[in-house]
Amino acid sequence: MFSYPTPDEVLAGLGDKVVGGLANAVVAVAADLVEYRRIAPHFVSRHSERGLANWIHDQMWSHVLRELDSIPNVSFVDKEPTRDVYVGLDYRLRVKRHSPTGAIRSYPTQEALSFVTQQPDLLSEDGAGIVNLCVGYEWDAGSRTIGGPVMSLRDGSFDEVIWVIDVSAGSGGEGTVRPMFPTGAPKPPTIGGTPNQETNKEEGSKES
């Protein structure tokens, strides 16, 4: 019998400083987009969906660096087009835009597919192995606006979502957790006691 780590287990492993920092980065990048629209609306209107997503990704990455850089067990690997955040030896995080159903988009390179496929050791009884997580924000494609901070675990493909949660920063900078099960989404089957939520594909950027 195998099981995936639960949201509570992952958040405890990441720690309040990391989770709060990620949430703060989303708040900051949402403010950046509002300011960008205010001072240069003509530039924003010229962006393609992919172009705007890439602009947001760069801003988000800069905020993640600022928020997490002083945390001792956090390290960064920035080798374009891949940017990873490592938390200790247990977690690898990648910034991604999420649809309201938790879907992400990326070019299906071997490296990208490898990231969204969890290591076999992770599913063993010992639960060893690094956990690959997508972190970022929920995107409203209709209004082209940034929603709340989210984190997801997937396995096998961009759309094979095990769970996705809303992680918001509380008064102390600590993250709070709200499981996300969008209205009208199919009910997830259970694997080892953890939901596996199917999602719909979304048009978007290779980076965010």
Rank of each mutant, 00 (worst) to 15 (best):
V77K: 15
D121W: 10
N54F: 08
R46A: 15
G51W: 08
N73T: 05
Q59C: 10
L93N: 02
F115I: 04
L93T: 03
D90Y: 04
A31R: 11
L65S: 11
L22V: 02
A28H: 08
A103F: 00
V95W: 04
A28K: 12
F43M: 15
F76P: 00
Y91R: 03
E35I: 05
L68W: 02
D121H: 14
F76A: 00
D90L: 02
V26T: 12
R46V: 02
F115G: 06
L113N: 03
F115R: 04
G127L: 02
W55N: 09
H47P: 04
P81L: 10
D84N: 04
D121Y: 06
A112G: 14
L52I: 09
S124I: 08
L65K: 14
Y86S: 02
D69I: 10
V29S: 02
T117N: 08
R83E: 01
G127V: 10
Q119M: 05
Y107D: 13
R46T: 12
K79L: 10
W61P: 08
H98K: 09
R50Q: 14
V95S: 05
P72K: 13
L65Q: 07
A128Q: 13
G127E: 05
I39V: 15
K96N: 01
P120S: 11
T101W: 03
A28R: 12
V64S: 04
H57P: 11
A28Q: 11
F43P: 03
H57Q: 14
V74Y: 00
R38Y: 07
D32F: 01
E80P: 13
S62G: 09
T101F: 09
I104Y: 01
A40I: 03
I56E: 09
A30R: 09
Y107L: 12
D69R: 15
S62K: 13
R38W: 06
R92A: 02
Y86W: 07
R105Y: 00
L22S: 13
G127D: 06
N73W: 07
T101N: 08
R66K: 12
T117C: 10
P41Y: 04
R66H: 15
N54C: 01
A40R: 12
Q118K: 13
T82Q: 11
Q59F: 06
L93W: 00
D78M: 10
T82R: 13
M60G: 06
P81K: 10
K79A: 13
E67N: 03
E111F: 09
I39N: 07
V27R: 07
G88T: 05
S114W: 05
V87R: 00
L89P: 04
F43W: 07
I56W: 02
R94S: 09
Q59Y: 03
H47T: 06
V29K: 04
V74P: 05
L89W: 11
L123I: 13
F43R: 15
E35G: 03
D121L: 14
V27T: 04
W55T: 15
E80Y: 07
R37A: 05
V34T: 15
L65Y: 12
S48P: 06
A25T: 00
E125A: 11
V44N: 10
V116L: 03
W55L: 12
I104W: 01
V44E: 05
R38K: 11
S70P: 02
I39H: 13
D32W: 12
V64H: 00
G127H: 03
T117Q: 01
D84L: 13
E111T: 13
P81E: 11
W55C: 01
A103T: 11
